[in-house]
Design a protein around this nucleic acid. Structure first.
Length: 596
RNA sequence: GGGGCCGUAGUGUAGCCUGGUUUAACACACUGGCCUGUCAAGCCAGAGAUCGCCGGUUCAAAUCCGGUCGGCCCCGCCA
């Protein structure tokens, strides 16, 4: 035991540290065996930790025993090496390595822990399929790209906390076990043992708590909060995710915009060392929908949606005229140089637009000699020319046109716009373009539930001038709500809140929530409003999405240490899983017979 | 709830459309041997797969059909 202690090695440097200046120093490195190159005589080991790689050389002349031991090292063994830093021989410098000027001549080797052969290569690209990566997430997380992503996430946490603290915000935690509320996403439920038959819900967001904190006088609050929504997943949606949740008292939207823009400038500077321009451009919801067909437009490239209804009204194409009579839209986008797209390619695009409801895709190509269009027989030459002018199409361009209900035209063309921009390389690399979307509708009509639902959430304030519309034409009311969009991703959304129980009750009435139900579900908030609620508003960031964009990833799974699959399971720890009969009994639960 | 793509040695792919001369191929990893300047080390040899699972069609299924499970992408959904 005593000799063990004496011989124990203490790490002096990391695998990313050593340079020519360390020549001659005795160092101790610890890490994972990244690769072994065994020449029978000399053995080279690339030793890896999260800081980098360092080449270790084992020479049998130093110690036969040590050399023997080095020859048994396998990939991912954890070892400690004591050795002397020396410059690499003439011509052996590796300029691709951070530590490529030097190597460590091993004097002592200890195997701290052997490793089974890993199921995939620990490298920039392991080549393994994603389910295998998720099962062995602890190995996947050793890969440099994921380590960098997690490090980026750390930097964003620190930047956010640093900025908000400096700006006078107070970090306050709110409960994870809370009351289930109607409206919004499906809740994750937690059964109560003390109150059998009753349930907590995990927060979809800390919305009601942060409003109550405003009433408590914490006029500048923030929290980096875990949120939970039991809905179907996407590349940028996980069942549990993280928000930067912010709320302020005595503010108007301008105050929020100013604070958020300063924070984004700070984050980009701290995390990427980049300067970004502000103020961020603003578009109203209606403008965004008209120009881009989406409320989260990617404005790194142009390609706006162009309305040609005024010309289409005069054509003989019944599909078009019927769409217009039914209140539909006829719009299109111009693809510069797109006249070279083949019939087959266009058909493929049309096929991809079908899930959005688009039934057809019409084309108008402009060449040097004239206009070639699938609509030629329905339009006069003059009208075709007018359409081409409306699009400002040059020879070699093609205009792709959809006629349908407004929401179908918008979503399918928005998809097409992004898709073509990606395929044709129109999106500038390494560009970051924010924009604000403002003046969202307050309410939307829900066909299934046969009533209005809150477009944002039921605490969102209507514009002052629209309050009367709540009782008369609710769909026309606009909200003091705003989203922050970055490169086509919604990264934050917020609003000025209702702060009087009088307006809040009018809102509930518009939503078809009667007084009894309102009291039952949100009574605590309505009560709180009676005791001097300050005007307030705020915003919440999708933290994972923000980090995803900053880290240059295309899925938030890449910036979450332990993400779930698209079916919300965790392949590493195999959750969700069954629980024992005793556990169920304790909670007063039994499973429906068909579940077993 | 719906649509699309994928599932073949430890890993990634080919083979599948057009069923049988395929003893299921290739690369990486792995095992053994040789090797003192490699850094994706090299050379030689070797082991490793009832083709996700269940059923059907057929003389014959990795291959065709139906179902099912899992992963990814999308529509709906996500206040």
């Amino acid at each position: 035991m005593h000799t063990e202690t004496k011989k124990r090695l203490k790490r002096t440097h990391t695998c990313g540290d050593l340079q020519a200046q360390h020549e001659g120093q005795e160092v101790v490195l610890m890490g994972w065996v990244h690769r072994r190159r065994d020449h029978g005589g000399l053995i080279f080991i690339d030793l890896r930790d999260r800081y980098g790689l360092t080449q270790i050389v084992f020479n049998p002349q130093e110690s036969e025993d040590m050399h023997e031991l080095a020859s048994t090292l396998g990939t991912e063994y954890v070892i400690a090496v004591k050795g002397i830093v020396r410059p690499r021989p003439e011509g052996m410098v590796n300029p691709n390595m951070q530590t490529g000027e030097i190597e460590v001549l091993a004097k002592d080797l200890k195997v701290l822990n052997p490793s089974k052969t890993p199921p995939f290569l620990i490298d920039d690209d392991s080549g393994a399929k994603e389910d295998l990566q998720l099962k062995y997430r602890y190995l996947d997380l050793r890969r440099p790209p994921l380590q960098q992503a997690i490090l980026c996430r750390h930097k964003v946490y620190q930047a956010v906390r640093g900025f908000l603290d400096n700006d006078g915000f107070i970090e306050i935690e709110t409960p994870i076990l809370m009351k289930s509320t109607p409206e919004g996403a499906r809740d994750y439920l937690v059964p109560s043992r003390n109150f059998k038959g009753k349930f907590y819900a995990l927060p979809q967001s800390p919305q009601t708590y942060k409003q109550i904190l405003m009433i408590s006088g914490f006029d500048k609050y923030y929290q980096i909060a875990k949120c939970f929504r039991d809905e179907d997943l996407r590349a940028d949606r996980q069942p549990e995710f993280t928000q930067i949740d912010i709320e302020m008292s005595f503010v108007e939207p301008e105050d929020i915009f100013d604070m958020v823009e300063r924070m984004m400038v700070y984050i980009f500077k701290e995390v990427l060392g980049r300067a970004i321009d502000r103020p961020f451009p603003r578009l109203s919801y209606d403008e965004a929908m008209a120009q881009y067909g989406t409320d989260r437009p990617d404005i790194r490239f142009d390609m706006p949606l162009i309305d040609i209804s005024h010309v289409a009204r005069r054509c003989d194409f019944r599909v078009f005229t019927q769409v217009l009579e039914g209140g539909g839209h006829i719009k299109g986008i111009k693809v510069s140089g797109g006249a070279s797209l083949s019939r087959k390619q266009i058909d493929a695009l049309a096929e991809e637009m079908k899930p959005f409801g688009a039934k057809g895709l019409s084309t108008i190509k402009r060449s040097d000699t004239g206009i070639d269009s699938s609509l030629a027989k329905f339009f006069s030459q003059e009208d075709l020319e007018e359409i081409v002018r409306t699009f400002d199409a040059q020879p070699g361009d093609v205009c792709l046109i959809v006629a349908d209900q407004p929401h179908i035209v918008a979503s399918s063309l928005s998809f097409l716009r992004t898709k073509l921009a990606q395929e044709r390389g129109l999106i500038p690399e390494n560009a970051f373009q924010h924009c604000w979307i403002t003046q969202f509708p307050l309410l939307e009509y829900d066909e299934d539930r046969d009533r209005y639902v809150a477009a944002h959430h039921p605490f969102t304030a209507p514009r002052q001038e629209d309050i009367e519309l709540l009782a008369t034409q609710p769909e026309k009311a606009k909200a003091k709500a705003y989203d922050l969009v970055l490169n086509g991703h919604e990264i934050a959304g917020g609003s000025i809140r209702i702060h009087t129980s009088e307006i809040q009750n009018r809102m509930f009435r518009a939503l078809g929530i009667d007084e009894h139900e309102a009291k039952e579900k949100f009574g605590f908030l309505l009560d709180a409003f009676e005791y001097g609620a300050p005007p307030h508003g705020g915003i919440a960031f999708g933290f994972d999405r923000l980090v995803m964009i900053l880290a240059g990833k295309t899925s938030i799974r890449d910036v979450i240490a332990f993400p779930k699959t698209t079916s919300a399971s965790s392949l590493m720890d195999d959750s969700p899983s069954k629980v024992s009969e005793e556990q169920l009994k304790e909670l007063g639960l039994c499973l429906r017979p068909e579940i077993g």
